[in-house]
Design a protein around this nucleic acid. Structure first.
Length: 821
DNA sequence: GTTAAGGCCATACC
DNA sequence: ACCGGTATGGCCTTAAC
């Protein structure tokens, strides 16, 4: 039998002591199929240099006798082969040791304690990763499967007795031509009576798919909402939820924060009600893998918590201030959550059931739309990294980088390095920090006609151009090698040297950068979401690569590499600043990979020509590009000290578009009133080149504050709770806000955004925290606080740029003047 | 009781 | 534990008077 197949969900099982894979996917007609494949696990024993043939033979005989006896299986050595391999870039002889069950790879490695063996590797890569590398059966690409149709016999212990159309035992798997694939997506969301997992009842569950929307409820039966279905109790509702999911037969079941909330809640309530949450195609209940956030997985269906993908990968593209469903959906879909206070409804037993149902449905609608919108990104990430969707949507960027490397080592005949052990991680984390990038000290002022140059993927291009990595690092200087600038590490000045023989680590990064360029070009020529996602995925990967070298959990961790890369970053940034100055431009700012300067009478054409010249002097694939030309820009004084603040500026381009960095405008822990005013002030100043209109704007706002005409939502300050409430050494306003919420009986979650305002208070209260009130608390805003601690700080150093006697203003009269308006 | 320095804390830039 | 160094600035805590 032969069929086309796209693999979606990977799982493994044991049969007669051996590992098998069960892969669920679809054929080209949309039928759901299952493929059973064998797996031949092995690990590596890297031999010491110069071990004789004779000794190797003896060693192999000893190894072949190893067996691991467990309660359910005995793992033995199937065969041992001698191979010429590379390890950390060096040529080695290694034994490829095939074993019967990968779950015992670790104990087998422990047994390989022979004097001829230098190192043991390849026992700590996750089984699925190992399988995909070996089989080439990569996720989300079409394959042609030749195999035997299984028919529900007990051949594999009945593993094929699952809810699929057909199940094959694979005999041959080969890649097939690409074609479009549209997954069946089903989104879900629950509403519960209490926030604590399982503490309250699940009041309703919504489900949204293509041409499918339902709200399941048991608390209330509305007459006029056709999508609401009513049940006699919670258990009945949960059973129907399971039934509907099974009937819809989704490839992807998606929630928003469902790993952390919906799934564990469903599990807890199902247990309580003695309902089996048999969502898996094999009728199993969801399982929860351990981890910082437990990942809920369903056999045969890819459960995606879209929040986790956004959190670890996609958030870099977002400007929303929180990663909550409302903010993210508003930004990506232009549509937010329904305005409804579910907590109020439950707590005060309100009877706004219609609104509640709509609210619940809308959450699933948004989750569904987000999943559709982000599908190209998840798809491309999965195809590029070659890891299954489930893993892709839950991994950090460093894990993505590492997985990408692991999946491409075979091309370099390279044996994988091991994961650092607990003690090693500890040591790495404790080691002294190394010096970072260079930031140019700006001079405060308003400047006209500016240009900004920046390096494209600077860290990546430095690593590639200087062949920097753990495995290309030389012990000492050689005749022809790359030499890092002098840097300080562990208290002494030193340099590092890297071989000119291309290493797999920088080479792979070189490929990533190349592919990024290629797909970016393709996207520009003929834009579509897939091309965009592909180009973005490579870009993200390239940018995360440097961070990976300095990440303590990395297999290819290398402080020397990270420190050297940064030394080059500093060198090239300063080099650019110098060159630009020498050419007669006035440099205004510079940070890490960018330099901004005044055109100083030169034309754009001259500047672009000069850019070309600079590029001809850069090594390897390093490249400077024009970030943009700007009409005006403003830099302000630091609040403490009499010099320009770094990482704080605002620019306006020729189209009048504002670009604000670092100012309160872009800081979410300032009230909207101050932020909006500052933004308007910056806009006015940069448009007109003078402060007249700005002063008017400030005057207006001050008047509004004094007359108590400011909207309440505009004075709210939002601050994130970054650690458990009782760990705070300093009791700041937002800690008070959190305590107040706790007193109300609401949950305090790590990472939640606390909202509060500063109110007028009676009596002698000096500290800000004593005036904190929650949004729904009664009280008037504190005029003095908002004038002096929000509005004034947000605008005073901006308008100060226009005053010749700048120093006097900050200490004296103008402050008073401003407030006297 | 007041005040300045130092530390804690959140957030931004790249 | 899940990229990390550079940087700003508010507010609290502490120590000194």
């Amino acid at each position: 039998m032969e069929t086309l197949f796209i693999p979606l969900d990977y799982d493994y099982f044991d049969w007669q002591g051996k590992n098998y894979l069960r892969i669920i996917g679809r054929n080209e007609k949309g039928k759901r199929l299952c493929v059973i494949d064998k797996f031949n696990p092995y690990l590596w024993a890297i031999l010491k240099k110069g071990v004789s043939e004779e000794k190797i033979k003896n060693l192999i005989q000893k190894i072949e006798k190893i067996n691991i006896k467990g309660s359910t299986r005995i793992t033995t050595i199937k065969k041992v082969e001698v191979k010429d391999k590379r390890f950390l870039g060096k040529q080695v002889k290694a034994l490829k040791i095939f074993i019967t069950n990968y779950k015992d790879a670790h104990p087998v490695a422990d047994e390989l304690d022979f004097p001829e063996i230098d190192a043991r590797r390849g026992y700590d890569v996750p089984l699925l990763t190992k399988y995909i590398i070996e089989s080439g059966f990569v996720p989300l690409k079409w394959h042609k499967i030749k195999g035997r149709l299984l028919n529900g016999t007990l051949e594999f212990g009945g593993i094929d007795r699952i809810d699929v159309d057909e199940c094959y035992e694979a005999e041959k798997i080969e890649e097939a031509e690409e074609q479009a694939f549209h997954p069946r997506i089903l989104a879900f969301d629950i509403e519960a009576g209490e926030f604590g997992i399982g503490k309250g009842e699940i009041l309703m569950v919504s489900l949204v798919g293509k041409n499918f929307k339902k709200v399941l409820s048991w608390k209330k039966c509305p007459e006029n909402l056709d999508y609401v279905e009513c049940f006699k109790d919670e258990a009945d509702m949960l059973e129907t939820f399971v039934k509907y999911v099974r009937e819809f037969s989704p490839d992807v079941l998606v929630g928003y924060f469902s790993d952390g909330f919906d799934m564990p809640y469903l599990r807890a309530r199902a247990e309580k009600n003695k309902v089996r949450l048999a969502l898996g195609l094999d009728n199993r209940q969801p399982t929860f893998a351990r981890g910082r956030i437990p990942s809920a997985s369903i056999a045969g269906i890819v459960h995606i918590d879209i929040f986790r993908f956004i959190d670890s990968v996609y958030s870099q593209y977002l400007t929303s201030e929180t990663l909550g469903l409302n903010d993210v959906a508003s930004e990506l879909l232009g549509e937010g959550k329904k305005d409804f206070d579910a907590f109020e409804h439950v707590k005060n037993k309100k009877q706004e059931w219609q609104e509640f149902f709509e609210y619940n449905l809308q959450d699933s609608v948004l989750t569904y739309k987000l999943a559709e919108k982000l599908w190209p990104d998840m798809l491309e990430f999965s195809k590029i990294i070659q890891e299954p969707l489930f893993e892709i949507t839950r991994s950090s960027m460093s894990q993505h980088v590492e997985a990408f490397i692991l999946h491409h080592l075979e091309r370099y005949n390279e044996i994988e390095e091991k994961r650092p052990l607990h003690d090693e991680i500890g040591e790495r984390r404790q080691r002294e920090k190394y010096e970072g990038a260079f930031v140019f000290q700006p001079t405060p002022g308003l400047y006209e006609n500016l240009a900004i140059f920046d390096f494209t993927s600077m860290h990546a291009s430095i690593i590639v151009s200087h062949n920097i990595s753990k495995t290309t690092l030389l012990e000492k200087k050689e005749k022809d090698c790359y030499e890092s600038p002098e840097l300080e590490l562990e208290g002494r000045k030193r340099k590092f040297y890297f071989s000119k023989k291309p290493g797999f680590f920088p080479s792979l990064l070189g490929e990533i950068v190349e592919l990024r360029k290629k797909y970016k070009k393709e996207f520009k020529e003929q834009p579509d979401p897939i091309k965009k996602a592909r180009s973005n995925a490579y870009k993200l990967l390239a940018n995360a690569y440097y961070g990976y070298t300095g990440f303590f959990g990395a297999r290819y961790y290398s402080v020397e590499s990270a420190a050297s890369t940064l030394a080059f970053v500093r060198k090239f940034n300063k080099w650019t600043i110098e060159k630009v100055s020498e050419q007669g431009y006035k440099v205004i700012f510079g940070d890490t990979d960018s330099v901004g300067f005044k055109l100083s009478g030169k034309t754009k054409e001259q500047t672009l020509k000069f850019l070309e010249k600079l590029n001809s002097e850069l090594p390897g694939i390093m490249e400077l590009e024009l970030e943009g030309f700007y009409k005006r820009g403003i830099w302000v004084k630091k609040r403490t000290g009499d010099f320009g603040a770094k990482k704080k500026y605002a620019l306006i381009d020729e189209q009048g578009k504002l670009k604000v960095r670092g100012f309160e405008t872009v800081r979410r822990d300032w009230c909207p009133l101050a932020r909006q005013l500052q933004n308007k002030v910056l806009q006015a100043i940069l448009e007109d080149g003078n402060e007249k209109k700005a002063l008017e704007l400030i005057k207006e706002t001050i008047k509004k504050i004094k007359n108590r005409e400011v909207n309440k939502k505009d004075i709210m300050i939002r601050t994130q709770l970054k650690k458990p409430l009782d760990e705070y050494k300093s009791i700041t306003p937002h800690v008070i806000a959190a305590r107040k919420i706790k007193e109300k009986g609401l949950p305090i979650d790590l990472g939640m955004l606390l909202e509060y305002f500063i109110a007028e208070t009676r009596g002698k209260k000096k500290l800000v925290r004593e005036k904190v009130k929650l949004p729904d608390e009664k009280g008037e805003y504190n005029i003095k606080y908002y004038l002096e601690r929000q509005i004034l700080p947000a605008v005073e150093n901006i308008i100060e740029v226009f005053n010749v006697n700048g120093k006097e203003i900050i200490n004296g009269k103008k402050q008073m003047k401003l407030l006297d308006f």
